[in-house]
Simulated scan of single mutants.
Amino acid sequence: MTEGSPGSPGTPPAPQASVYNVANLLTLVRILLVPVLVWLMLEDGTGWRVAAFAVFAVASITDKIDGDLARARGLVTDFGKIADPIADKALTGAALIILSALGELWWWVTIVILVREIGITLMRFVVIRYGVIPASKGGKLKTMLQVLAIGFYILPGPWDPIRWGLMAAALVVTVVTGLDYVVQAWRLRRGTPAAS
């Protein structure tokens, strides 16, 4: 029988993944680690900064793990789609703000990155009725460079050349991919809505 044919029960819809799954749990853990990271970064002493680096590293790794698990095991949920990017931006945003507040990173760098991240996220929600802007390879590279740069800024030690190089690369890729997303959104907006 064909689904939805008159007089037939039809084929039952595919079961939706429960919101209570390991991928969403890891996302929640990442969100809960943000205030822990902030607290550790605000404490004085090398040991505290090493602990902050460890927390940041663990939280960053959960981002990779929860995404892979969600896709591999069919655990993608609406909660995960919303919470995952929020967790990512909360983690990197909090670290950048604390680094700038401590005078270890120029404020303009933090502002450029945060404006791009928040702006692109809002733009994606605005144009979603016309279609979805998929994550690009450049976007994934941007995330990796940001995480590496922030990690080296948090980690105590004589890492300045590496910190500066990674942050410069992250900043360039962040801006370039942001402009690319704006162009994609503009083209999507000018085209036929996805629902048509």
Rank of each mutant, 00 (worst) to 15 (best):
T2P: 13
P6H: 13
G10M: 14
A14V: 14
Q16H: 12
S18H: 07
L32Y: 06
V38R: 00
L42F: 06
E43P: 00
W48L: 10
A51P: 08
F53E: 04
V55I: 14
V55Q: 03
A57V: 14
A57P: 03
T62N: 05
T62D: 02
K64T: 13
K64E: 09
D68V: 13
R71S: 09
R71I: 11
V76G: 02
T77H: 07
T77C: 09
F79K: 01
F79A: 05
K81T: 08
I82E: 11
D84F: 00
A87H: 02
A95F: 03
I97P: 11
G103K: 10
E104F: 11
W107E: 10
T110F: 06
V115F: 12
I120V: 15
T121V: 08
L122Q: 09
R129H: 12
G131M: 06
V132Q: 06
G138H: 07
K140N: 12
T143C: 05
L148F: 15
A149V: 10
L155Y: 07
G157A: 10
D160Y: 13
R163I: 07
G165N: 09
M167P: 03
T174A: 05
V175P: 00
V176N: 03
T177V: 13
G178K: 02
A185N: 02
A185C: 04
G191R: 11
T192E: 14
P193T: 08
P193H: 09
S196H: 11
